[in-house]
Write a protein that binds this DNA or RNA. Structure first.
Lengths: 231, 231
DNA sequence: GATTAGATCAATAAAAAAGTTGTCGCAGTT
DNA sequence: AACTGCGACAACTTTTTTATTGATCTAATC
């Protein structure tokens, strides 16, 4: 037992994340007091679409995917959630239910911060609020992109989008493709699993990508972009 | 679209569960107003140990298991959650985090009722409160039993307990054993998976049970009880 | 110091899930 | 009416999980 070190560790944990750096000691204390830390195992839901939400989640480490649940067979993947990002913010300021689900792709150390703590810090600390707005804004942009993709592009463009998106995360998370099944890729592109399989093969044949088991290497980035644009 | 039928259905749903029968129309309305309904798929977490809880869950249909999470490998199963039962009540009156996890063994239609609605109904309606107390009490009894088992019994007694418990649910849910892996059985008994496998085989050899794939038939109920008592 | 209860490990078998491929059909377009 | 884009189904293969078994290893008990 090393209680001193442990509390050090906890302190470190709060302060370390860039997004909490700007808080005053009292504000940090407010957040710390109303938070609880949870280990989500690979496959666990961080949020469940439709469930009540009295808190937001802040991912310390690990990766998760965020998606909307449709009927029993069909999900649509929205994004990969990375360390340092919030999940479930939408539940804080408006609805009090989560409007999407998210599940851990790897074990995730997460802390949960109660609604009240976040809203009151936002009210006190403009810089923090500004940051929060920025996050919402980014998410919005992504939602618009998603919408555009779904509305206007067809298979080739969609899977190209997906490849480019996931590949953009690969620098920081080299194992990212390994964590995604073909169904996941399909759910990002909003097409059937079988179509995803076929398209990936055909992209490989055309020399756009290389398939190594589950890992995918983007070879011709430019052409993929082209396909994405063409739709 | 048949909106009238749909609201009928919803109404039916509230009123149908015995535990809500005793509510006055206004009280029922209070509950109805603050509830949301969620479909949990097989494998989904209904509650996650350690997460904030601003609501309790009421299972309409489907089965789930409730367990405590230990270190990464070791869970301990507490009970099977059946339709008509609450999950997460403990979070309502005392702690505001769930002190156990639970996951759906089959798809589960569940509704979530916010804390405030439950507490205020309990304060108004003594009969409902009484019922709630009864539920807590039962759960307590079960926890004591679990504790006793873990503290004092050894493998044979533990797995006998598990078999008797699960078998007692079989009348209402004939498929129950199919839904549980050997690891689940082991986690109920608090022993290793391998030990569970070996014990089940040996019980089969002794004619106490029959193993048909995943299904288990209790042949000698009396003797199992005996083993459970002996410990 | 020997015995016992049980966990842990490693090897294998069996079952389930995920991935792959070809064929077909349907709804829009041309 | 022919064509295109894509999902749905079926059959099959591969990979991943789960189950099973035997062989140690360990700590507690006699």
């Amino acid at each position: 037992m090393k209680p001193i070190l442990e509390t050090d560790q906890e302190f470190f944990c709060d302060i370390q994340a860039p997004c909490f750096q700007m808080l005053s000691p009292e504000e940090a204390e407010l957040v710390r007091a109303s938070k609880t830390q949870v280990l989500f195992r690979k496959g666990d839901h961080l949020t469940k679409q439709g469930a009540f939400a009295s808190y937001a989640l802040f991912v310390i480490n690990g990766l998760a995917k965020q998606y909307i649940e449709g009927d029993s067979t069909k999900n649509f993947n929205l994004r990969i959630i990375k360390p340092g990002e919030f999940v479930g913010l939408s539940a804080i300021f408006t609805k009090n239910t989560f409007n999407y689900s998210s599940v851990a792709l790897t074990d995730c150390q997460v802390f949960l911060v109660e609604k009240e703590a976040i809203t009151s810090v936002v009210k006190q600390n403009g810089q923090f609020g500004f940051n929060m707005i920025k996050r919402y804004c980014e998410q919005n942009t992504n939602l618009f992109d998603n919408l555009r993709t779904v509305l206007y592009k067809q298979m080739n463009g969609r899977i190209a989008d997906t490849l480019l998106y996931v590949d953009s995360l690969k620098a920081e998370n080299p194992e990212i493709f390994q964590l995604l099944s073909r169904k996941d890729m399909a759910d990002f592109a909003g097409i059937s699993t079988e179509s995803a399989v076929k398209l990936l093969k055909s992209f490989e044949k055309d020399g756009l990508i290389e398939l190594h088991e589950k890992d995918i290497v983007v070879v011709n980035h430019k052409e993929l972009l082209e396909i994405s644009k063409k739709g």
